[in-house]
Design a protein around this nucleic acid. Structure first.
Lengths: 189, 189
DNA sequence: CATAAAACCGACCAAGCGGTCAAGAGTGTT
DNA sequence: AACACTCTTGACCGCTTGGTCGGTTTTATG
């Protein structure tokens, strides 16, 4: 009988996924080379191609893992209402800034059939958030409900662009502020 | 005496700037080739290099023009308070979605010395918005003022990501909703 | 009308890219 | 111990890229 895959196969794959995500996010997915990503991970380029079929497959795994985690976290927080959701999302982005950034500006470079399952994850997030908004502020027509839901995502997704750890409000402090802001804002629309 | 530059020099440069911006935004700056941009503009690649020194110089001109316009528009709207500012920014993004998208995800690819003047424009925008927020909601400490200001920018900058012309709320309708949302939200922080 | 520079182009180039390959080293199974 | 397969690598390949160059056409100026 042949030997199977190594016991630490998944860990090494995970290391490459994490290292490449950081490298891709820092340099921009298109501009970042596989040679550079390999160096960042401390392995040869050929080894990455042992674990992944292509640069696109690697990106897909990064985004799929990230979005799956995010959906799981958010589904667990549905019981805590809109403020709980906002807190959960911002907390989940911690240690995942790179993956989050990639999701926002590299997902579109994947071929449509690879995008589809990732977009399905995103839709699930939007649906959960939309339900929480509708529960907090009933009676909005569909167009306005969607607009307000996306407004909340704008707030959350923008956070990584301006926040610098150790400066200004902490993540948790901002989560509280954002929850207050959204809660009050919903009364005005 | 030699002949000077053509009378329509600036117009042609502007056409290249606009065409390239659309092409860059559609395909992503890094992924988009100068050959493709030239085809989009209906000129040869060599002609673009007659008007611009490099791909980076072209991107710089796109962003500098866009941000200068934006600052001008916003400075004109300072008298109309925070709702007027929100309306003005969203209106200014019309017909400039491409430039806006490029600003968000390609500015960072420029070398620092080219980024500097663009970031100065951005800071001016932030300062104006911050003043409007402070006027609407006095008494916020600096950290929270900054956080709320960035929250507003998150709302505005995210708009192009989810809005599809002709579907859902119009730009103007969303501007009104966003102004209401922010106005009410400020009372909750 | 002569002229010198701007406006414009097709063909070309070096460099870096994603990806492949042949081969050696390491290891679970028999 | 022998096998069969995974793990790991440096060298390599075809292709696209940003950018250049020599040359032709056009036009403002004297």
């Amino acid at each position: 009988m042949p030997r199977g895959i190594a016991r630490d196969h998944d860990e090494k794959r995970g290391l490459i996924r994490k290292g490449a995500a950081a490298y891709f996010a820092r340099h921009g997915y298109d501009r970042a080379s596989m040679t550079g990503a390999a160096r960042e991970c401390g392995v040869s380029k050929a080894l990455i191609y042992h674990y992944y079929d292509s640069k696109e497959a690697l990106l897909f795994d990064i985004l799929d893992t990230h979005l799956s985690d995010l959906v799981a976290v958010v589904e667990d927080a549905t019981g805590e209402g809109l403020p709980g959701l906002i807190r959960a999302v911002l907390a989940a982005y911690e240690d995942a800034d790179a993956e989050h950034k990639l999701q926002l500006d590299a997902l579109g470079t994947l071929p449509p059939e690879m995008q589809a399952p990732l977009i399905a994850h995103q839709r699930r997030l939007v649906a959960i958030m939309s339900d929480a908004v509708a529960a907090t502020r009933p009676g909005l027509d569909p167009d306005r409900l969607r607009a307000v839901t996306m407004t909340v995502f704008g707030i959350l997704n923008w956070f990584y662009m301006w926040h610098r750890p150790g400066r200004g409000l902490s993540r948790a402090e901002y989560a509280a502020l954002a929850a207050d802001f959204v809660g009050a804002g919903l009364k005005g629309v």
